[in-house]
Design a protein around this nucleic acid. Sequence first.
DNA 1: AGTCTCCCGTAAAACGTTTTATGAAAAGCT
DNA 2: AGCTTTTCATAAAACGTTTTACGGGAGACT
Lengths: 338, 338
Amino acid sequence: MKRRPPVSIKTVAERAGVSPATVSNVLNAKPSVAPELIERVRSVVAELGYVTDSNASRLRSGKHSLAGVVVPDLSNPMFGTFVSTLETLAREDGFDLLVVSAANDVEQEKERLHAIRSWRPAGLIVIPCDGALSQRTPPSMHMPIVVVDRLPDAPDFDLIAVNNAQSAAAISAHLSEQGYRSCTVAGSMLSISNIRERWEGAASAAGDMTLSMVEVGLEAKGIRRRLHETLTQRRPEALFALDHITGLIAYQTMTDLGLSAPGDLAFACFDEAEWMRLVRPAITTVRQPIEEMATAAWQQLSRRMGGNADPVRTLRLACSVEVRGSTLREGGRSSTAA
Amino acid sequence: MKRRPPVSIKTVAERAGVSPATVSNVLNAKPSVAPELIERVRSVVAELGYVTDSNASRLRSGKHSLAGVVVPDLSNPMFGTFVSTLETLAREDGFDLLVVSAANDVEQEKERLHAIRSWRPAGLIVIPCDGALSQRTPPSMHMPIVVVDRLPDAPDFDLIAVNNAQSAAAISAHLSEQGYRSCTVAGSMLSISNIRERWEGAASAAGDMTLSMVEVGLEAKGIRRRLHETLTQRRPEALFALDHITGLIAYQTMTDLGLSAPGDLAFACFDEAEWMRLVRPAITTVRQPIEEMATAAWQQLSRRMGGNADPVRTLRLACSVEVRGSTLREGGRSSTAA
DNA sequence: AGTCTCCCGTAAAACGTTTTATGAAAAGCT
DNA sequence: AGCTTTTCATAAAACGTTTTACGGGAGACT
């Protein structure tokens, strides 16, 4: 591909026989440019394929059109859907998104938050790895930040989350209603705020069911090993996974061990993925409203970027609980009083 | 959060009692700065939390640290994994990624490719919606572009793809070996080059098996409807889905119709997802080497961004075929000569 | 015909950095 | 002591835009 010097506003101006200021006025639809000049400039822009340098434009005008998104891991489909929805909304408002991920590592998250500042985004939407954001967002970080999904460790941030405790409680109550006497709750780490909320919610509604918590970590091999231990040492009657990746590996582990749901082991997961409907029996899940979370997050960030200085705001969205075959005992429902 | 005027290199210079040029020299580790000044500048940078404006830096220095990635849809886990891997590699080379997606729409892809240019990325990695890239990358678009997964419609681009035809042929041959006499091959659209290659590959190795192609489109409802029609009108003995989303919806449709694999309908898919191993029987798949594709794409783009002007290059990576229960007939293998 | 007002195009400055050229001071050499 | 060379700090320019202030010309009014 033959390399040609890049086209700048000066090139366009020279070719059109006007000044760079006139080209800028045309491109930015400023009033009081003669129709003849408008036509001439537009024609040259099309001919040369000129595209304004958004960085230079922001430098001079101060007007932003970039926002940043920081997520723990783009391989997780939940985050992929989240970012995809955000992008659609951002584009409608004339923004592009700079998307970075932290590989589920708090040190990388710190580095990513630092690095993203250098692009001067107008604001940030952050799904933190664990929530210790105030350590990673120094006082000099002035841009508005909306936190999603995990609770930040300081009250300075707008937060969009789901009703973790209540939804996990619903699962716990359901399992208890079905007559299960013991349940292991598996989650990555209790230091991750939404995992802790879910555990606490589950614990609050266990009724007569004995609940225990196992922290399986974030690394697939470790998750697999701890779940394998859990299911082979003293197997509970039910297993409740508190996040998507834990749920996926939990299901793999129980199928590898030849355990079928719900007879050998009832299984529920706090996150919905398509495959959970496909396996037989289908899996009881808590479905998080990912697109609503993305919508609420973008709307709140838009307000902040627009100058809104209201007190910080927390929005909790409701999940839905999908009861499916993986937790239903034969006659289980009818044997318990409503 | 109290808004304070942003800190610039001038603020740092004033506070440190040096010139902006000295601050720049310190931050960029230029030789011949007195140790005392280095220490003073660093201390002020830390105190004020100053972060260089990468846009202004690139404007003056001409040195890039942003690359662009365009994918059809981030909700598709394959693209999520791809971008995640790219990001890790880019970061190792000191680059950030501007990630945009086209919502599987060629008009949006055109708009996205145009918009991403305004950020002046040093290069682009593009998974096109259908491959008609030369229409969406005008001659004025000089940055290096590496195309991934789908064939571009012009020979100007580096390409990283998989051996679609050969891998699909392997599935087709396997189905024929198993004794299936008819197979429907379902893919989004033949105008998408990798779908076309896969169909052609499957067709080339069908042997005695009757093959037919159904183009199901990209929109979930339409995919579901066409697959439903296909499976209820004149049901084939086998179904081979050519991409992930088609495979997911195909499996949903057959389970909704009460069809079990492989007895009622053998099922194979050209893409691997975790759930395909979890369902019973597990699904026969072609596993694409997503991380290797990302690695090869980044390496090639790095070379191009570094000034390499070798002729354009195509790299085809090999997929692996995972034969599982969804296509294995009882005694099917032993009845066919190797 | 002269004066005043309005329109329109643009020169120059500014944004935040980096680079380059320059000058002053210090160090080295004779 | 004087001259030459080297070091180091910085003034000014430059990157690609947008904004602002200014000047010239045209039109309107008397």
